[in-house]
């Protein structure tokens, strides 16, 4: 497969930053708001944003089931922050009726690191990303409370798991799209390439 087409779920959040990071590592990109747009992509990024808003809009506009189907059928997906929450099988502290796409055998805690005043930057070692640690930008970030046997923790901060890989699914509690370092997006693009 030459250059895979990677979609960014564009219901709400920092869509443009993910599109730019994917462009920079040589993927073809498109934004996804409708089921037919989802059907056309080889892989999908769920961006940072408000997980309650993204979940609500995905339900209302008939994307939740198609998302679950494609992820279930093995479409590679990457979620940052709110996207990590959307890829979790379970939320520890969901809002009433808050649905996720699921796929990664983990339980996440929303806003685990605190409110905006506690938001922070710190270097994080990510397994599978060679070289220097990545610049972790954590904004009202979640962490992974617990993981099932199929999910592999690939980064931790302050004793908490903050990045996970399970087969073709990848999730980070931090926002590589807000930095100039595109190695996490390169890793995901490679996952999409090899899946095809």
């Amino acid at each position: 497969m030459s250059s895979p087409l990677i979609g960014v779920l564009a219901l709400q959040g920092d869509v443009r930053e993910h599109l730019a990071a994917l462009d920079a590592v040589g993927a073809r990109t498109t934004s996804v708001r409708r089921p037919e747009e989802l059907a056309a992509v080889d892989g999908l990024v769920i961006p940072g944003g408000e997980s309650t808003t993204i979940s609500k809009l995905a339900s209302v506009f008939g994307l939740l089931e198609p998302l679950r189907e494609r992820v279930g059928d093995g479409m590679p997906a990457y979620g940052s922050c709110a996207g990590m929450i959307m890829l979790a099988d379970k939320i520890l502290d969901p809002r009433a009726g808050q649905e996720t796409v699921g796929g990664i055998d983990m339980i996440v805690r929303r806003n685990a690191f605190g409110r905006q005043n506690e938001s922070f930057e710190a270097a994080v070692h990510v397994a599978g990303v060679p070289g220097d640690p990545v610049e972790g930008v954590f904004i009202r970030a979640p962490w992974v409370e617990s993981l099932g046997p199929r999910a592999e923790p690939i980064a931790e901060y302050d004793g908490h798991c903050v990045a996970v890989r399970q087969d073709r699914l990848l999730a980070t509690a931090f926002h590589p799209e807000l930095t100039g370092d595109h190695r996490v997006h390169a890793l995901f693009t490679e996952m999409v390439r090899t899946a095809g």
């Binding site: 959040g13 940072g48 005043n117 710190a122 904004i139 690939i154």
Partner: peptide, 30 residues
């Protein structure tokens, strides 16, 4: 998990321009 994260935890930096502006980026399209 120590096998994947050999280094000690680095001190967090709060209130940076990137963290403040990045918060607004998360609100976009909303």
């Amino acid at each position: 998990m120590s096998s994947t994260s050999p280094s000690t935890t680095q001190a967090p930096e709060t209130g940076t321009a990137r963290v403040k502006r990045g918060m607004a980026e998360q609100l976009k399209n909303g």
